[in-house]
Design a protein around this nucleic acid. Sequence first.
DNA 1: TTTACTTAGTTGCACAAACAACTATATGCC
DNA 2: GGCATATAGTTGTTTGTGCAACTAAGTAAA
Lengths: 146, 146
Amino acid sequence: MPNNQFKKGELYSFVTGKASTAIARRLQKKFNSAGLNLTIEQWSVLYHLWKKEGISQQELCNATFRDKPSITRLVDNLERLDLVKRVASENDRRINLIYLTRQAQKLQEQSMELAEETLNEALETVPADKVDVCKEVLQIVYDNLK
Amino acid sequence: MPNNQFKKGELYSFVTGKASTAIARRLQKKFNSAGLNLTIEQWSVLYHLWKKEGISQQELCNATFRDKPSITRLVDNLERLDLVKRVASENDRRINLIYLTRQAQKLQEQSMELAEETLNEALETVPADKVDVCKEVLQIVYDNLK
DNA sequence: TTTACTTAGTTGCACAAACAACTATATGCC
DNA sequence: GGCATATAGTTGTTTGTGCAACTAAGTAAA
């Protein structure tokens, strides 16, 4: 009976991701208060583009763990907000390379600060070594299921 | 600098809840394969009703960490699937008490087994004491932000 | 080079979430 | 009793997700 230490109440939280839901909601509120007209999902796409832009939608799918239609629509909305641009690849005309606009570049610093602030609030009073264990477990869970 | 052990890449996973997304997706696939015509969100409502039925929609909001419109529509859909029934409270006519149908009672055992199975797959190779730490940290995060 | 297959992206549909605005009922205070 | 306020639930709108079906473009093999 491997790892069957889940009494009923605990099972629920794991499946529904109450903790990450709470984090995302708190961060969304911070975005709204700061006047950033940006959803968490849109931010998560920009997040990867800030690390490396000019990647394809398929690469964004892999990076953000979303399917292709989800990325199509997130890029649609980001394009409407004038935060990214689709540029057809010259080598392979099936591919859209996604680039940041200047406006999106300006959002990076502020939004990342709010994200770090949110995590600090979330992890207040949690000792660093326990945070490390938690990160490690969540990574394994992801690797086991992806 | 409290808990600022978040390098960029790790920040992302925490905010987006990649692990819990992976768990929910895996469980949804198991539901589908088993012919259970049920979303994870619907299951999460039934989950609380299996523990105690005849509670109000507001109590379901608190239990499932959702807002009132979300619960209204989940109950709408569960009612359409003939899994729950709204019964007006006699004491307070604003309140709907939610009861399970016989059909919903029959779903409990099978779906809970699939949920436990999913968690066992997720936590395969993770030592029990690390799982405990992880659960503890996620609970604190939730309490810090809710 | 024509046919089959694969890959990148889009569209349609059903379901869900968050917010604001709304209705109906209950409660508390004068 | 009558008015203000609070609570329970619903509805409308925008955004996002997952699946299936689709188009366009590239690849490989006969």
